[in-house]
Design a protein around this nucleic acid. Structure first.
Lengths: 257, 257
DNA sequence: GGTCATGTGTGAATCAGGTTCAAAAAGTGG
DNA sequence: CCACTTTTTGAACCTGATTCACACATGACC
């Protein structure tokens, strides 16, 4: 009886280890060769398993991609965990969220492309329900972090409570601005075509304009590049002190340990 | 000689007509059955041509999609042409751009999905250079409209000229906000998961916050839903008067005539 | 130990759909 | 009408995801 249970336990552990291996190698392959470089049979061979075995873990190629994305998203979300503990005013904390995300994107350039591909109707349609919810779940802490900062700012009197607008909906602004700028920055040749450079610097300034528009104290004039830079440096320093720097080389490759 | 030239002319015209037919039917198919519903051989058969003929117009399936997208983008861009002529202050004009785009998205729900799919690295890589530039070119009037409104606002004294920031870069803010919100709104089940509804209403309020943060006159408090609604209605009315209403049923289907 | 039932792994075969290209048809000039 | 060029055709090809009949391992029971 005990015997039976412990072998079952071992089985589950082995199975999970194998799944982690698949996800790990898949991610490596995507990083090296792009999304097209990921081929189911090649990946299986890489891991020294048969194609069919791979399909016992993932219903389809898209399902596998969603699993990879979920793992990365968990890493991304983890960055926001330290933010509530930072010694910063609420407005700076919101900035910290945006900066942490910008830095994550800089360190993991393929993450955005993967997500973009994944949420495409063609791809998303082939992702199993379980993986869909897993991915949504992995992203939840991100919007929760945003919501928490907004709530705190309101409670603390930094941000007047907007009428007909919950905390999530207030956070939607910076979030959408962030998402949109990442999109534009990643669209091959788009910003170049309009001769726009350093999109993230502009994201930060527009971010301040947005928050100042909502009267989020302490207000900061977006048209004061020096102060904007100083504030960015201040918040980046706080992030770095908490171990979430732009130069965090981690890059997820160390996930296996 | 004349003869030769005129048959060549006729040839070109016929060829263009055939290409338009392909694009038209392809779009119809996408609208009806989604992106997966578009199959090269089926489409060719639909149009009563052989598969190979289709490939004389489009290097690949992705190339065809880009052509469809370019056509839609031209329609989208056309909406902005009337905006400079509207009898509105510059701030309201910027709002008009956003509203026109929201309405376009409402009338053409598949447009965003197509674009999203297209700019994916996997897909974009298979689009011919000619079609890429054509698509970029089709989108240019959009950012030009934005840039023009910003320039006008600065010239008119409605918007203080921000330091270290050109007109395009100022327009980048509302543009990114717009793009980001459309993205979030289109991500299947994302906003539902966080119990956020009416994303475009929030987009409009955040838009006002952003512009107010940049001191774009006449300032409008984003936390005044009644005034925001009134302003939206005012601008929508101006758009409707110019023939660019939310209820414009056009839907591109009439493109063939 | 031997044998059967059950679950797991295998990888060659299947399938789908985009793409090609050799042959046929149409067009052109003399 | 003939020789030659250009265009069209659609069946064959190719790639790569997915499946599934079979081999194999595991554990229960005699």
């Amino acid at each position: 009886m005990l015997d039976h249970m412990s072998t079952e336990d071992r089985r589950r552990r082995e199975r999970e280890a194998r799944e982690a291996l698949f996800i790990d190698r898949a991610h490596a392959r995507i990083r090296e060769d792009g999304l097209l470089g990921l081929q189911m049979s090649k990946l299986a061979a890489d891991c020294e398993y048969a194609t069919g075995t791979l399909y016992q873990h993932f219903e389809s190629r898209e399902d596998l991609l969603a699993a990879v994305a979920a793992r990365s998203t968990r890493k991304r979300a983890a960055r926001f965990r330290v933010i509530p503990g930072l010694d910063l005013d609420t407005r700076a904390r919101m900035l910290a969220i945006v900066l942490a995300d910008i830095d994550f994107a800089a360190v993991n350039p393929d993450y955005h492309r993967l997500m973009q591909y994944l949420v495409t109707e063609v791809v998303w349609a082939n992702v199993s329900v379980a993986r869909r919810t897993a991915l949504l779940e992995a992203a939840r802490p991100i919007s929760e972090a945003v919501g928490a900062v907004v709530s705190e700012a309101r409670a603390h009197g930094d941000l007047p409570p907007a009428r007909e607008m919950g905390a999530e909906e207030m956070g939607l602004g910076p979030w959408a601005l962030n998402v949109g700028m990442q999109d534009l920055a990643n669209a091959q040749g788009l910003l170049d075509a309009y001769d726009i450079h350093r999109p993230y610097d502009h994201l930060i300034r527009h971010f301040h304009a947005l928050l100042t528009g909502w009267r989020w104290e302490p207000c900061l004039d977006p048209d004061d590049p020096a102060r904007v830079r100083a504030e960015t440096d201040r918040v980046r320093a706080a992030l770095a002190a908490a171990g979430i720097g732009a130069d965090t080389v981690e890059c997820e490759r160390t996930a296996a340990d």
